[in-house]
């Protein structure tokens, strides 16, 4: 039917250079299936917001393009805008308005009728537990309330694709959980596609059907959180020594119980079949290959270990 082959979002070599030679987003090829939650996971400065800005037509790409909801962001940005909802990373509410006015104004911009606007605003304010504050000026809202209001504002127009840039940034844990539940509900009830960005590993693991790890403008790996974690082996071992780790890393790779070896900035990360059972073997191998161990730890693998494996660095805020 269209060039996107059923994907809600498909980018091809999407690139943004803010200054010549410095690529904030570097040849991004991304596919997001309809009716899924896709999380772009990466540290600050990885290019997540720039990617969202290009996909939502806020920012033109330097090269490459993308199809969003069946429309090309370059050829038909208006077509894209009609079908998407966006919540930005920073709070962008006109705080001289009341919550209800902000929703109504937003609905007007998308050509909703007065009856539709009233009905949806009422329903969404209930959903976000903002009925009591609906007719108060937004300047009197708390940070969490503003965030929830922005989230439902993006839903006023019943978009095909909802973009959420760091939806829980600066939100307390209670509101964070509420917002998370809400995002999951959207997919189930409305068949919506959600693309969110986060630097929170747990959030990505909990909410996303698919996680795309981005680092320095590049998409490093894509997969479901479960698959990404499963390929790490049953246990992850973090080995930290005070010598060059190359010899140890290659010796470990030759062992048949080792499924993954990744050199990181703080040592070597191994995926093994059973951490407890293999601990002594790994310690012995390390000392034999001239890599005196300072610390060693065993844990169930997480998305954090996946991130460390692909980028060689830990994901920090």
């Amino acid at each position: 039917m269209n060039q996107t082959g059923g994907y809600a979002i498909q980018t091809s070599a999407l690139t943004k250079e803010y200054e010549a030679g410095v690529r904030a987003v570097d040849s991004l090829d991304l596919k997001v299936e309809s009716n899924t939650v896709f999380a772009l996971l990466g540290p600050n400065g990885a290019g997540k917001t720039t990617t969202v800005s290009m996909l939502t037509t806020l920012l033109p790409p330097t090269s490459g393009t993308a199809f969003v909801a069946g429309s090309d962001i370059l050829e038909d940005p208006a077509g894209v805008r009609r079908k998407i909802g966006v919540t930005f990373q920073e709070t962008v509410l006109d705080d001289a308005l009341t919550g209800r006015q902000a929703l109504d104004h937003h609905g007007q911009l998308y050509g909703l009728s007065r009856a539709e606007r009233r009905e949806r605003a009422g329903e969404l304010l209930g959903l976000a537990e903002l009925e009591d504050a609906a007719d108060k000026q937004i300047k009197k809202y708390s940070g969490g309330m503003k965030r929830r209001l922005e989230l439902i504002r993006g839903l006023m127009t019943d978009p095909e694709i909802l973009f959420l840039d760091e939806p829980t940034l600066g939100v307390d844990p209670q509101n964070r959980a509420k917002i998370g539940d809400h995002i999951l509900g959207l997919k189930q009830r409305k068949g919506m596609t959600v693309l969110l960005t986060t630097h929170d590993l747990d959030e990505a693991a909990r909410l996303a059907d698919t996680v795309g790890i981005v680092d320095e403008g590049r998409l490093v790996v894509v997969g479901s959180p479960a698959d990404l974690i499963a390929q790490m082996g049953d246990d992850t071992m973090h080995v930290q020594g005070n010598a060059p780790s190359d010899g140890f890393a290659s010796a470990a790779a030759a062992l048949d119980f080792v499924t993954e070896v990744a050199a990181t900035d703080s040592g070597v990360q191994l995926g093994v079949d059973s951490g407890d059972r293999r601990l002594t073997e790994v310690v012995r191998l390390a000392s034999e290959s001239g890599y005196p161990i300072e610390t060693i730890s065993v844990s169930k693998p997480t998305l954090g270990d996946v991130f460390l494996k692909y980028t060689g660095r830990e994901l920090r805020d």
Binding site: T57, V92, L93, D94, Y110
Partner: peptide, 16 residues
């Protein structure tokens, strides 16, 4: 001010 605060972004991504 509306540009710097980001309020204008709501308009930029709207179909107008």
């Amino acid at each position: 001010l509306e540009r710097v605060q980001g309020i204008v972004k709501e308009y930029i991504v709207a179909p107008i």
